[in-house]
């Protein structure tokens, strides 16, 4: 389990390309690791599954799911998991939990209690702590999402929060689903005030509660109309028996995925991620050395759209000369 015991990045990447789902835990162990040796293996892994290497975008779809605490995300995901498995799609779930400020430690798996069948080998569920990173995602989660998309049909990234979380998740996922429960006004306020970006799909949980759920859905629809986004679907679901709306949600997610220009979205996301990783690793000084954010963005835009994040970061790095390592924002 130490750096030296890890399988090689190339090997793991190759097996992902062959859609060997059993390597998922080892892939995550490697991508989460911060030792220098493991970082190099991780880069090797990622380039094995980059669009340039694959010849196309990874086939799996990455679904981001976020929303306020207790909104019903995990319960809903348990139900969605069953629906996807019934359709024989393999599923990887990456649940990101907050870490304790004081100790850096975390309690995982408590929030993200997703019901699963332990004998099902086509399901992978991993919880990771967000660590010191603000904004929802854990170190390595975005990379993991991309890597696993080479092997799994569906990759879910679940984060908690509202307001900021869905901004970062938008860089990691092909489609962002924001989950709210009836009677919680936050999301509505954030939407109206523009603090929150408009998600691809909105879900109101706990439809079984009746009228409150109906009003919540109506209010969200009204807000979206006033923002000129009436095409954003708002769905109502109940995850307790008898469940309702789950199939429709799975379908709405698929429709949304079919509607977007996936390669363009992923390319944009990779570029934005490479830039923020570059800044995280080498600091604002290095960015200024490149001639500022605008210049960096232009430089990225000139690269091959199939380049993976690692290669893009490398491109920035060579343009900047060697800026010297800052503190990695892990």
């Amino acid at each position: 389990m130490s750096g030296s015991e890890q399988a090689s990045g190339n090997d793991l990447g190759r097996r992902l390309r062959e859609r060997d789902l059993t390597v998922a835990p080892a892939v995550l162990n490697l991508l989460e690791s911060t030792t220098q040796a493991d970082r190099e293996q991780a880069l090797a892994l990622l380039s094995e599954v980059s669009p340039a290497r694959l010849g196309h975008e990874p086939r799996g779809r990455v679904v981001g799911v976020t929303g306020p605490p207790g909104a019903g995300k995990s319960t809903l995901l348990s139900a969605l998991l069953r629906t996807w498995r019934d359709a024989d799609r393999s599923v990887a779930m990456l649940a990101v939990d907050p870490s304790s400020r004081a100790s850096g430690g975390s309690l995982l798996g408590d929030r993200a209690r997703i019901e699963f069948d332990p004998s099902d080998r086509r399901v992978f569920i991993r919880s990771t702590a967000a660590g010191e990173r603000l904004g929802g995602l854990a170190f390595g989660t975005r990379a993991a999402g991309q890597a696993l998309a080479a092997a799994f049909d569906v990759v879910v990234i679940e984060t908690v929060g509202v307001g900021q979380a869905e901004t970062e998740i938008a860089d990691a996922a092909d489609v962002v689903v924001v989950v709210v429960q009836p009677g919680s006004g936050d999301v509505l306020q954030f939407l109206k005030s523009g603090i929150m970006e408009i998600p691809d799909v909105l879900v109101v949980t706990k439809a079984d509660l009746g009228q409150v759920a109906v009003s919540a859905r109506r209010d969200l629809n009204a807000a979206l109309r006033s923002l000129g986004r009436r095409d954003t679907p708002v769905l109502s679901v109940s995850s307790v028996p008898p469940p309702s709306g789950i199939e429709q949600l799975a379908q709405a997610i698929d429709e949304r995925l079919a509607a977007i220009d996936l390669p363009a979205r992923r390319t944009a996301a990779r570029r934005s991620a490479a830039l923020s990783d570059f800044v995280g690793e080498y600091g604002m000084r290095a960015l200024r050395g490149l001639g500022g954010r605008r210049t960096a963005e232009r430089l990225l835009a000139e690269q091959d759209p199939a380049l993976g994040e690692a290669e893009l970061e490398q491109a920035l790095l060579s343009a900047a000369g060697d800026p010297g390592r800052g503190v990695r924002g892990a």
Partner: peptide, 16 residues
């Protein structure tokens, strides 16, 4: 045990 492991800085998976 789970709470203390978190308090000393470990990542803890506990689902009840």
């Amino acid at each position: 045990i789970a709470v203390r492991a978190r308090d000393i800085g470990m990542d803890v998976v506990y689902s009840g």
